[in-house]
Amino acid sequence: MLEPARLVAALPELAQGAATTLALTACSALLSWVVGGVVVCALLSGSTASRWTARVYVSFMRGTPALVQLFLVFFALPLLGVHLPPFLAASLTLGLNSGAYVAEIMRGALLSIPAGQREAADAIGMRSVALWRRVLLPQAVRIALPSLINEMTLLLKTTPLASVVAVTELTFAGQIVIARTFEPTEVLLAVAVGYLVASQALVQTARAIERRTAIG
């Protein structure tokens, strides 16, 4: 059994790994929202080429493992002269992967909005930008919020993949401590608690936002 003093001594190392995990999740989530927004616009556009390109992207990202995508970004891009630091490569891969799911979530939310609202906006002469900003996006985000938070939670739990390119996130930090102490149970419990706290923070934040944006 790992002595309490040794576990306490390992906490700064685990905390640093947790900070890296949170930073990786935040960077990947920000990229996924941007990519998802662009892709959903392409999916719903009137351009056949844009829709086809977006569908190929979504199919590839959802149909191949994130680990394979990470290997392609980290090991294949250097063959083309593009060398990315491990953290940036992991953030880019996870963000692009999650962006495909965000796009599908937002597409479903936008399609669930009654067409009569668009027709009413056209009838009063509302411009396209105002229609998206004041009518469509607020409702779509409210509808999609639970699914988006679920996707962010899955993204958080996908971050251990970054360890394969030597990013010392929480799980990898735990493995380093285990290799030094030969006591996996207590360390893995500490790691699990770290992920649980982070995921619950996401869930509680989503519930607070849902309460603030609730209709009626």
Rank of each mutant, 00 (worst) to 15 (best):
R55P: 10
P160D: 10
S59F: 14
Q200G: 10
V187Q: 09
R180A: 13
I209G: 09
L67H: 13
T64H: 13
I215Y: 09
M1F: 15
L188E: 05
Y57K: 03
W33A: 12
V177R: 00
T205C: 12
V73P: 05
P12G: 03
P78R: 07
R212N: 03
F74M: 09
S163Y: 12
L67N: 12
G216M: 05
P12V: 04
A103L: 06
L145S: 06
V141N: 02
L188P: 13
V177G: 01
E210P: 01
L148M: 11
S128P: 08
E210Y: 00
M126A: 03
P184N: 06
Q117F: 02
V35R: 02
G174L: 11
C41F: 11
A120F: 01
L170D: 10
N150T: 12
A144G: 04
F75Q: 03
V102N: 13
G108R: 05
T171E: 06
Q200E: 14
T48R: 13
A214M: 10
Q204G: 13
L84F: 00
V38N: 06
S59H: 12
V177I: 12
G37N: 01
G81D: 07
V164W: 00
R118I: 06
A49M: 12
I209K: 05
R55H: 15
W33V: 15
A90I: 00
R55T: 14
V167H: 01
R6P: 04
R118M: 11
G36S: 01
N150F: 07
I105L: 11
F75H: 11
A120T: 02
F74C: 03
L84R: 03
M106S: 02
E169M: 01
F71L: 15
P65L: 00
R6L: 10
L188T: 12
A19H: 09
G116L: 10
L79Q: 15
L2E: 03
L189K: 10
T25Y: 00
I178R: 14
P184F: 01
H83G: 00
G17W: 00
S91R: 00
L148W: 01
A120E: 02
T171D: 02
A115W: 08
L88D: 02
A109F: 05
M152H: 12
Q117S: 08
R142W: 10
P4D: 00
E3C: 08
E104R: 07
T93E: 02
L67Y: 14
Y195C: 07
F182G: 03
R207L: 14
A121Y: 01
T205S: 13
G216N: 09
A29F: 03
L88M: 08
A90F: 00
A109Y: 04
A5H: 12
